[in-house]
Design a protein around this nucleic acid. Sequence first.
DNA 1: ACTTGACCTTCCCATCATTGGAAGGACTAA
DNA 2: TTAGTCCTTCCAATGATGGGAAGGTCAAGT
Lengths: 151, 151
Amino acid sequence: MNIGQAAQASGVSAKMIRYYESIGLIPKTVRTEAGYRVYSDRDVHTLRFIRRARDLGFSVEQIADLVSLWQDRERASKDVKAIALEHVTVLERKIRELQEMASTLTHLARNCHGDTRPHCPIIEELANDEAGHLHVKPDAKFGALGKAPVR
Amino acid sequence: MNIGQAAQASGVSAKMIRYYESIGLIPKTVRTEAGYRVYSDRDVHTLRFIRRARDLGFSVEQIADLVSLWQDRERASKDVKAIALEHVTVLERKIRELQEMASTLTHLARNCHGDTRPHCPIIEELANDEAGHLHVKPDAKFGALGKAPVR
DNA sequence: ACTTGACCTTCCCATCATTGGAAGGACTAA
DNA sequence: TTAGTCCTTCCAATGATGGGAAGGTCAAGT
């Protein structure tokens, strides 16, 4: 199977497969004489495992751990559980931050007429020198919405 | 006021002030003969406005809009409100995604003994060829947790 | 006057996951 | 043979930010 077919079958783009190989998340594949990468069903299985973990928001670093645990038949389930629960903690913190942002904005928007007049509490709050702070102080983990990498 | 003092007073790092200038979010400042940037209280006020908007998760692009609306005394409040509400929509979608990730993982972890035996539903779910999909399909806006840029 | 140390300048690099594209080789079907 | 699709590697960009180097400037203390 060539990389394109493996990509199709696993849901991981060919670009990302090469990238995962380059960073050592997956081992280097066998090549044809012409240099084409060749994938087995087993490789596709691994790629799907990786894609699902990405869908759950695990970082590549965490996925590397999960993959090796997956392939280790002697592993303790607590090792896997620990990674999962740690990730849940991070997810929940981020959820709280976003909820605070959303509720602050919703509150401000509710008090904004939204008409053609210039008065607007949203702008006024942002410009307010007194307040000095808003409800949310994002930690150094997640940035603005709308641009970050993905999947 | 030099850039360090402006940074202190506004809560925006000197690095970011120079960056914001380079991308045109804030205008080029006056310089001393030696080339030092000089800031007024008004500039600091603008920087604080920007920092608060960042704290609420607005992208630099959105902030550029907000800043120009802020400085336009004739602007209609609906223009500001529209930006805020659009952002709230994005925030809420992201919150939902993260909640689904967290609940899927929590569910799996609850069914994992977390002992020294190898049996682990978390790994099994990730490796499951049948399921083909998990609950969450992140959109192309936000990446894995734990690494993205910020504030 | 000279040194020290804190500040400033610009420039480049790294992050993280991902996409895009260019240039060129390989394969397949007509 | 040729067209078209696939593959290869390499380089660049994304967004917001931090880190650091190399060098200039300033203010205070000796």
